[in-house]
Amino acid sequence: MASEPRPSPRQPSTEEIASVAFGDAAQDVVRRIEIAATRDRATADLLRGMRTAAEAVRAECTAAQELEPPADALRRALALGARVAARGQRPMGAIASIGSALDTAGAAIASWLGLARGDEAASVTLAGFRDDRGADTVAGTVGALRIRAERIEAEDGTERVVGEIAREEGAGGAMRGSIAALGAGETVLARAELDPFGMFTLAVPAGTARLALIDRAGAVVAVIEWPARSGR
């Protein structure tokens, strides 16, 4: 006996597949889509792709809040944009930049270096910039070393200095040595070793304005000095 051809099941719509992927489809729709996916490669691929996307976005949206860095950390990372902007203004001539915003600090460093190393002709270039917390970030070049440091005040009143010492390209690997907070009469108030990347974090007494960079042989290579704080 001839039988009538069975009607082919209706092709599921993209919206129905999305509802299964999203997780709010009725049970009969879920069953129908799953059956369709076993018969049709394109439906199976679309369902898998949408499920992957839905799960990924759900996981991301759920975790978004806990993965958000603290506002202060983010602000400090964004403040590095000043360094990026400074790239557009390079190069500054040796010594010439001392006459800019950090002329006082630059002169102090040059003088200090001259005394410390017996080298009056020490070539110092210091470029500074202000971030939104005031003049707490300094950057400069001493010989083949590039120095960047930021002074950070925590809410509990403690202070840290975070920074890095990098050699100019072609001048060898990271600098090894230490960084020391200087008090009156060049006394060392705190000291920390540079890590293998030339980075450092140093807890300093509140108000510390000068750091000395010391090489492995114990010689002072440079002094980092902040301009006076303004209106904090």
Binding site: T14, A18, A42, D45, L46, G49, M50, T52, A53, A56
Partner: peptide
């Protein structure tokens, strides 16, 4: 969702299944 699946596939997310959904 379909568009995101394609974008994620293009970016190489997961097993790439997302990117193969262009037939539909």
């Amino acid at each position: 969702l379909e568009k995101l699946a394609r974008v994620l596939g293009t970016l190489g997310f997961g097993d790439g299944a997302a990117g193969r959904s262009e037939g539909r």
